[in-house]
Amino acid sequence: MSFENGTPSTAWRRFRDSYFLYRLQRDRRAQVCLLLFGLLMVGLLLTPWIAPSNPYDLAQISLLDSELPPFWVAGSEPGHLLGTDAQGRDLLSTMLYGARVSLAIGFGAVLVQSLLGTALGLLAGYRGGVVDALLMRVADIQLSFSTLMMAIIVGAVVKAAFGGAFYGEYGIAILITIIGLSEWPQYARTVRASVLAEKRKDYVDAARVLGFSGHRIMWRHILPNTLSPILVLSTVQIANAIMAEAALSFLGLGMPETEPSLGSLIKSGFDYLQSGSWWITLLPGLLLVMLVLVVNLLGDWLRDTMNPRLYKG
């Protein structure tokens, strides 16, 4: 704290003194989750350099290496730590690359959802009246369809209209759009609720009296005060999006066979479960569970931490 030994920036100081860090230091569960999440993120960012092989490069795959077990089972080969899948792809590499795809879809979809949902929620909450009624009815209709059903319909239409090759090429982008578009009402609802509560507060009136435009009040004054529910919702939604992608891929509507995500990897291994090659399905399955669990637990913790009623009370 002293100015003599270096000058810690104010941001760092604010962080060090924050309630956030205080809670983190006292919550073992959150620490473990954060550590695991950090490790996963680093691993996935560095995948192209740390993965033993590139499963997307077909020239590196040999069918003769197929279905090798992981290292603790007899018959394994040292080159393949977690064994290989039915095509002879190194399972560790395929899982890493697959998790990258899953996570990219998770983050991407949440970005689409939150941008769309927040904008529409703000608008609905602030403007009220016809705009509100209209937007919320649209959201109601959207919510009455399950995400999976929406995704299946849109996916099938895109496949029929542009062909499977197109779908294969832009698989990630299409999945992000599909999952993003079908989940925006979650955000819109949350943001609208916060806005309704915020807009009656004095600071909004003050801003209005000062003559600021509605646009500015919405984005610069109200939005920052609704950010914490958005943040919490995002963690839940990332986990949901990853699950939705896995489910779609498992049904054969997600990522193509040549670029497997965790979901399609689980699916392709599923046929081999009966024949004894359990690892092809089980290991990616475990990674998926871990990924979703860690993100969910972090989100949970974040919600508790950011809930003003909990920490001020």
Partner: peptide, 16 residues
Amino acid sequence: AAMLAKINVTVEFETL
């Protein structure tokens, strides 16, 4: 597709 990749043939692959 993987086997043909070994003779440098790139296979654009589609299943229906």
